[in-house]
């Protein structure tokens, strides 16, 4: 197994975050998983929330879950409308909202292809225009028919995490947080 050691070491090497605040700061975290089939929404799967939280924590930002406004988010599908809901509810900024709306696309050579569209929005007073945003359009190729929206997002969770990181770094840059050495 000694020959595998270099591979394992390379596998452990992860690039660090580009920017990191000096002291820990709280960020309210809202995750939303929508469906094309109904108005019902729920939170993103725990593994995806964990990956988003990792991105926050890597920058010394402490995620604070604020729960899901299921009824309101079900009928308000856009980012501005949902941020309004949070504002009306008195959720303190900064707020990071990660929303995904996967839809089944088609069967492709043994896989079930899903289109996963996500938006990452960070609402903060010190962000440019009060809002830093990113979007993601990815495809998930699920193996089983019973796998649905949650599994489709899990399949692309690495991409979701990366987009969250980009949005956070842009926000921290506008605040003048320097790049990590």
């Amino acid at each position: 197994m000694r020959w595998m050691l270099p591979l394992l070491l390379v596998g452990c090497l992860k690039p660090g975050p580009k920017r990191m605040v000096e002291t820990a700061e709280p960020v309210r975290l809202v995750t939303v998983l929508g469906s094309y089939e109904s108005e019902a929404v729920e939170e993103l799967p725990p593994s995806v929330v964990a990956r988003v939280s990792e991105e926050l924590q890597a920058r010394q930002l402490q995620p604070e879950a604020v729960g899901l406004f299921a009824e309101a988010f079900g009928v308000r599908r856009t980012v501005p409308a949902r941020l309004e809901v949070l504002e009306e509810a008195g959720i303190a900024q900064p707020v990071l909202m990660v929303s995904c709306d996967p839809r089944f696309d088609t069967q492709v050579n043994g896989r079930f292809r899903w289109q996963v569209d996500c938006s990452v929005a960070l609402s903060a007073a010190d962000a440019e225009g009060g809002l830093e945003q990113g979007t993601l359009g990815a495809s998930a190729h699920l193996v089983y028919y019973h796998q649905q929206e949650a599994e489709a997002v899990e399949e692309v969770s690495a991409l979701v995490g990366r987009e969250v990181g980009r949005v956070l770094d842009r926000w921290l840059a506008t605040r003048g947080v320097p790049e990590a050495p």
Binding site: S35, R77, V108, R113
Partner: peptide
């Protein structure tokens, strides 16, 4: 294999409006 999709009439979430997509696969 390339799977191509074009949303002729894009589907909206939780919406009962008609939608249409065209698919082509080259493999």
């Amino acid at each position: 294999m390339l799977e191509l999709r074009y949303d002729v009439l894009e589907r909206q979430p939780a919406d009962k409006q008609p939608w249409s997509t065209v698919h082509a696969r080259i493999e």
